[in-house]
Design a protein around this nucleic acid. Structure first.
Lengths: 261, 261
DNA sequence: AATACAGTTCCAAATAATGGAATACGTTAT
DNA sequence: ATAACGTATTCCATTATTTGGAACTGTATT
């Protein structure tokens, strides 16, 4: 497990929590012991505290799994998120125009976190993937959001990015990515040319969230067999317009005062 | 703010986090100072740690709001939740049968937390309200789940319950609730007769989650103008059957070994 | 019964948290 | 300009919590 920063006890607790949450099944004490590298005594107390707080639950067989408190906290913060609320009608409109799935995402470090989604097919899980985090360097919204950053911040993020190769089209280094980011700045929109998932393409545009120093974006995504690059290019103007509209709405309704993303 | 238990530093941090998350807008330092009752120095360090961990975000105007890490953690634990996964097809089947909204909920202390939902109308927010917590004593799933508890646990929960009156039909005391819980144990299903929200009724059945010591339930909910008590009674057998099926599936696929809710 | 393994408890030492007070910052009023 | 105010931040000696190795308990396994 990664070394935790200068966040003292809280950092350790969160690292342990993360270790349990990212594992695929219930974790026994020894599993977590190995994953976390904490000494036995310390880990035991940490786990008790996490259970007492409802962040973890202990099963009858003593193994640990995520507790419901996380879900409740996330629900509260999600439904109080004014930025998402403001963006929603614009996402809907874009979905009606294109018939394809529309995403709203916010950049956090090297990842893009999806905070809303509008889609046709009802087959869907959760709001399918609200809260899901994907690498920024190989997703449309991610690259769009990166294009908003200043040089120093961009460099810091890229230095931390691991260029994992997902498909033949995935960027393999910062060099090619930086070149594309130049294009994105010029054009005002970004494409995902099957870089993260094969057979999945998207066109995205950046949004600056006023008040917070957050970089966000929205996108239209579709399967390659149905959505050609020409089709995406044709939608680009509408995507830029929607992003712009969200930004303006947010500037008015969030501003420096009450309420925020 | 409620006094935090013996969870040391983590408890304080979570209390502060909760204070920010439950507030309706971004909170300034002084707001949180008043709400949390922590001394200035302590609170300031706590907030920095929460921000460093990504649990809070600080805006340009210095106010604090929920960070994205909560959403990501919740997403991971939700999508890895095998109990929800197992229940899902049964919820879907029940939805197809009734045409009304179907919920899956798990009891946590005095509240029922919704962990999945299947509904027709696509107008919906988030998975509308996954992660939302409602009082157990006035909801169908809540009362169904309470009926699974032993006397000691039930008493402990009821002692902590505040009987807030939401509608003319809301239980006003433990006495009437306990009487109804007897009925629920006998019948195997529970009704919500517009007790939490006016014009909203539901029929629910309890599920015992094996492995965890969790009490859960599922329900069919509809608006009073469309769903009569007779209709709900007619659905009760199907709801019981679905709950039973989820329980059996879970017993097989969760068991004492790998994987869990 | 003996052995191995997993989880829990203990406690002196180390460390991080504490919190009151002083300081810096930004804003509005004089 | 300058003063006055409200707010956020930093400081640091004290204190309480965390730390973590080791001993202990309980439960399977041979």
């Amino acid at each position: 497990m990664r070394a935790e920063a200068g966040t003292g006890t809280l950092g350790k607790a969160m690292a342990v929590l993360e270790a349990v949450v990212t594992a695929d099944g219930p974790q026994r004490f020894t599993d977590i012991l190995a994953r976390s590298g904490q000494p036995r005594g310390t880990l035991h107390r940490l786990l008790s505290h996490l259970v007492e707080e409802g962040l973890l639950v202990q099963r009858r067989d003593l193994s640990y799994e995520p507790g419901l408190r996380l879900l409740t906290l996330a629900y509260r913060s999600w439904s109080a998120n004014r930025f998402r609320d403001i963006a929603e009608p614009h996402l809907r409109r874009l979905h009606e125009l294109t018939g394809e799935t529309v995403h709203l995402g916010i950049l956090r470090e090297t990842e893009i976190v999806y905070v809303d989604k509008v889609e046709s097919r009802q087959t869907v899980r959760m709001s399918s993937q609200i809260g899901k985090a994907s690498p920024a360097y190989c997703t449309g919204i991610g690259k769009a959001a990166l294009s908003l950053l200043g040089p120093a911040e961009l460099e810091r993020i890229l230095a931390r990015t691991e260029f994992h190769v997902f498909t033949p089209h995935t960027h393999r280094s910062a060099a090619t990515l930086l070149a594309e980011i130049e294009d994105i700045r010029r054009d005002g929109h970004a494409f995902d040319r099957e870089e993260h998932e094969a057979e999945i393409r998207c066109v995205a545009a950046p949004i600056l969230i006023p008040g917070s120093e957050l970089a966000a974006g929205l996108s239209v995504t579709g399967p390659a067999y149905r959505v050609t690059m020409e089709q995406l290019s044709a939608w680009a103007a509408a995507v830029r317009a929607a992003a712009q509209a969200v930004g303006e709405d947010a500037a008015i309704r969030l501003g420096p005062g009450r309420g925020g993303p």
